[in-house]
Amino acid sequence: MNIQEASRRRSERVWMGVVAVASGLVFTVLGFLVAVLVMGAIGFAAQHGLVHTLLGARWQPLAGRLQIGLFIVDSALVTALAMLLALPFGIAVAIFGSLVAGAWERTVLRWILTLASAVPSVAYGWWGLAVVVPGIRGLGLGAGYGLVSAGLVLALMILPTFSVLAWEAILAVPEDWHQTSLALGANDDQNIIRLVLPASMAGLQTAFLTALARAVGETMAVQMVLGGAVSHFYGLFGPGATLTTQILTDMAVLPVGSPNHGVLDFMALVLFLGVTLMTGTMGRQVRGRGRP
């Protein structure tokens, strides 16, 4: 073994060590985060009862009434609305960008989507306050602050992320397959519906999961337009509160060290487990399908 070879191997060992330490650090931090949440949540659940907390809908943090059922329902509704609104448009944008658009249209569209996915969420919230809330109010559908407004803002927020990932998934379908399909007499619509979408389904599902995770976890933009009502369900156009927005709002009255701070750990853990469960289950299906 010459000197150069020995030096190369030493360098490789150092970098492998750096990578191992970095990976270990990530897992340690993640483990610590989960441990803190679990400890706080277990202490809280032992005191207040798991089912009672999850299914009840009374929220008066200073009076010790800490039931989060309403927030879970609102979180699910806002996320579902956002996904329902964003998905069709996202797929349409991805199909147009990857299969229909010309070179310059593709460049411009890609640039816009990349730019839009980098916009901070508070800017989307501000847009919601300036456009969505007055718009819904103008239609006579309440004060404008509510689940639908939050769903609309969230849909716009996740649209670029979903579109870019779906675009990549569609591009991954081999060109030969398109040519073969067209040669067999399929028109463009048949090609897209019968070949492209099924063949890129694994990638589309990954895009869906990424968008879903972003939607469930979003806080600031939703908080700005949701209205924050915690006592009842006021309908889709009425104000509400999600798990994330209520954690943000009540951090001020349930800070670390205060009685009942554990409910915030519990809410964060519910959110964490919910997203992990959803993405894990669907992710297994995606892996099962494999590449086109």
Binding site: A143, G227, G228, A229, V230, S231, H232, Y234, G238
Partner: peptide, 19 residues
Amino acid sequence: SADGPAQVVQLSNGAVVRA
């Protein structure tokens, strides 16, 4: 009481004024 009718909750004075 806390269990009032439908209310829009805003986190700051400025946000209340705007709403």
